[in-house]
Amino acid sequence: MRVLGMISGTSHDGIDVAAVDFEASGGLLEGRVGHTASTPYPAELRARLIAALPPAPATLAEVCVLDTLIGQSFADAAQAAIAECGPVDLVVSHGQTVYHWVEGAHARGTLQIGQPAWIAERTGVPVLSDVRIRDITAGGHGAPLVSVLDGLLLGAHEGGAAALNLGGIANMTVVRDSDLYAYDIGPANALIDAVVTSRGLNGLGFDEGGRIAASGRVDPRLLEVLLDEPYYGLAAPKSTGKELFHLGYVEAALAETGHRPADADLVATLTELTVRTVARDVRAAGVDALVVSGGGCRNPVIMEGLRAALPGVDVAPSDDYGAPADDKEAIAFALIGWLSAHGLPGTVPGGTGARAPRVLGTLTPGAGPLVLPAPLAVPPRSLVLTR
């Protein structure tokens, strides 16, 4: 079964896609990763999306417009991918998270926009979407959903391993023997991107190659204030997003310090915040391997900082495990689509905190009858990814 996974993450910079051919054999699931791509949002759409995100107020009219425009962008990306890789049996669209409602350390709701009917209409392929909410209704956080992929990829790793995704938010899955837990650590690129974008530091909206951070110096007082965030002290499972970690959050921290460092020093400090919070949690997990994916793994300041802070831990990109670091989340949602299509849960309770595993998503039919594979009674025990 060939599944096209699609996601725009918390960096909200564009759409990542991955086509994966899955074949199950006993307890082993093999996935051949074919076409992968990343399509940036049009500049005007990204600016409009950023302007509507919390803590900014947004009207229902604007949400409706963005739901359509983002859905059409996803449809464009799906159509382009299918033209490259050939027909697919299912499209899985995560859409764009615009609000993740956490209150009292519990997830209460989540909203991803990007109307899937535009994808189904354009491609004629059934679309699985709205994949997070079912886990939340079962008491989970609806995040990090990539933990189901991490468990299958790393379960056999002796000594325990952790999978770290450095997107807008840093999330980690810890796998040891048959045990798994996962949670959102805190900001990875979210605060860095917010400052780089708002101050027009390079015209890209992110710190390419960590160059800005490398040119600055860490501000000890500001770092102290940032590390005092109560979220870091909460027990897992837990989830967060740009509802907490946004530009206004940085401005409030600066106001508390009473001074304003140079732009490069500010970026260096926010980068060090990512290194410190991640390294602390990896040490607490007691693993000997850290498998890193997401845009942050292309930032040498973050990666060198993690290696320096984690002596004795093998820090490597997820590419070494068959999951290209830039495409891992899209691959994870393709996997969730395969699981849902076969009637299998796409969550691990230890990964999200839900009462029990749940089959995820809502299906939008394609051009013809909705035909699903025969259900499987037993989920796969491991996954091998190849190109």
Rank of each mutant, 00 (worst) to 15 (best):
T68P: 11
T68E: 15
T68F: 06
L69F: 14
L69H: 15
I70Y: 02
I70E: 04
G71C: 08
G71Y: 01
Q72H: 05
Q72F: 00
S73W: 03
S73T: 14
A75K: 06
A75L: 07
A77L: 06
A77K: 07
A78N: 09
A80R: 15
A80L: 13
A80Q: 14
A81Q: 09
A81S: 15
A81R: 09
I82N: 09
A83H: 09
E84D: 06
E84P: 04
G86I: 13
P87C: 02
P87A: 07
P87L: 01
V88E: 03
D89L: 00
V91F: 00
V91S: 00
V92P: 05
S93D: 03
S93A: 12
H94R: 14
G95W: 00
G95D: 05
Q96G: 11
Q96L: 10
T97E: 00
T97C: 03
T97F: 01
V98D: 11
V98G: 07
Y99P: 00
Y99N: 03
W101I: 00
W101D: 09
V102G: 04
E103G: 00
E103S: 03
G104Q: 07
G104P: 11
A105D: 13
A105W: 02
A105R: 05
A105K: 07
H106V: 04
H106L: 00
H106P: 00
A107H: 04
A107S: 14
A107P: 08
G109M: 04
G109Y: 05
T110A: 10
T110H: 05
L111M: 14
L111D: 10
I113M: 08
I113N: 11
G114D: 11
G114E: 11
Q115R: 15
Q115H: 14
P116G: 08
P116H: 08
P116E: 08
A117Y: 03
W118P: 05
W118K: 11
A120D: 07
E121S: 15
E121W: 14
R122Y: 01
R122T: 12
R122D: 07
R122L: 06
R122Q: 11
T123W: 01
G124C: 11
G124M: 08
G124Q: 09
V125F: 08
V125C: 12
V125P: 13
P126G: 02
P126I: 01
V127E: 04
V127G: 03
V127Q: 10
L128E: 04
L128K: 05
S129E: 04
S129C: 13
S129M: 06
S129G: 06
